[in-house]
């Protein structure tokens, strides 16, 4: 096994699928010769040729529309949206078109497309690079939305996404790209889309989270342990569809929960998780389910990110509040 960063694991997943399936195509702005602005596609054009790994003109809507056309002719496109804040430029192609292709055509066509895109705060980008927009995507029936929290999951989930016959939005948190290494098998493996993972077992409270907030939640859980609060941490890994069974089983055990997301509080994934817990496990609850989230402003200017983004101290505070309710 090799020690890999998340970005290396992502490259490795694409390499694996480019090798496995001649219909896999990887493309986007700066993806070819340059290997991507984060080097996610480093070396892939050299290894697989320009026919399969290529640069596109700088136009996100064009990239999205072209992906659909390539899918119609039998390809399995893996386009990159250079930063997910640019998704507004390609919203019709994603939500209006690829998400609806199977439905609209009554099953005649489908869109086995994996839209990869970096997002996430803490790296001081200019505006419209770091926004957490998974809630927008999760609102759209027809899509799956996957957010890995570590290198091992990133590889297994991305391979599953590429093999999936429906469109998957695969969101890669920039802060996680190179923040730590992990053992990642060199051979292929998959992680099922739609399955959460219990990252840490506990008995007093469930912390449901995903993406970069998994690390913050694990850190919070360690601190909480010092105060005799045993927290269970669930990494959703897929935010749409939700792994409801894993969430409910945990809440029925701990009787308390908080949901942690880096995105703003309004609407979004955490609100949906709270609603599902209310629908299915309200009689198990000893306290209200609270949310840890960013405030409902536009994503913070970079010099204010540190005060704006939720962190482990916010998680500790909310968890303690729920436990002491």
């Amino acid at each position: 096994m090799a020690q890999m960063t998340m970005i290396q694991a992502i490259t490795d997943a694409m390499r694996t699928e480019l090798k496995n399936d001649e219909n896999v195509l990887v493309f986007g702005e700066d993806v070819g010769q340059n290997g991507g602005v984060f080097r996610a596609t480093e070396g892939l054009q050299k290894e697989f040729g320009e026919d399969r790994v290529f640069d596109t003109p700088l136009a996100e809507s064009g990239i999205g529309g072209m992906s659909i056309g390539l899918a119609l002719t039998g390809f399995r496109p893996v386009p990159e949206v250079q930063f997910f804040g640019f998704v507004y430029e390609v919203m019709d192609a994603i939500s209006g078109q690829m998400a609806r292709l199977r439905y609209r055509s009554g099953g005649s066509f489908h869109a086995p497309i994996t839209v990869r895109s970096p997002f996430g705060g803490g790296v001081k980008t200019p505006e419209l690079h770091a926004d957490s927009l998974e809630g927008l995507m999760a609102q759209q029936p027809g899509l799956k939305v996957v957010i890995p929290s570590n290198p091992y999951d990133a590889k297994g989930l991305l391979i599953s996404a590429i093999r999936d016959n429906d469109p998957v939005i695969f969101l890669e948190h920039m802060k996680l790209y190179r923040s730590f290494r992990q053992e990642v098998p060199e051979e292929e493996y998959t992680i099922e889309i739609g399955k959460a993972e219990v990252k840490r077992e506990g008995t007093d409270i469930t912390i449901v989270t995903y993406g970069a907030m998994v690390q913050a939640s694990l850190k919070a859980a360690e601190e909480l342990e010092k105060n005799d609060i045993s927290a269970e941490v669930i990494d959703l890994r897929t935010v749409s569809p939700l792994d409801i069974d894993t969430i409910i089983a945990s809440v029925e055990k701990t009787n308390r929960a908080i949901v942690v997301q880096e995105a703003q509080k309004q609407a979004g994934i955490a609100a949906n998780v709270v609603a599902e817990i209310n629908d299915r496990a309200i009689l198990s609850l000893e306290a209200p389910v609270l949310r840890v989230a960013a405030p409902d402003t536009v994503f913070a200017f970079s010099a204010a990110e540190d005060v704006w983004l939720p962190d482990h101290t916010d998680i500790i505070e909310k968890a303690t509040q729920v436990v002491n309710f």
Binding site: G65, I68, L70, L72, A93, Q97
Partner: peptide, 20 residues
């Protein structure tokens, strides 16, 4: 129904035909 959405898709179908 969306005016113009089919045009970028056409570029993709055409590129797919060429690649095949």
């Amino acid at each position: 129904i969306i005016i113009g959405a089919q045009i970028t898709q056409t570029a993709g179908v055409a590129l797919g035909l060429k690649k095949k």
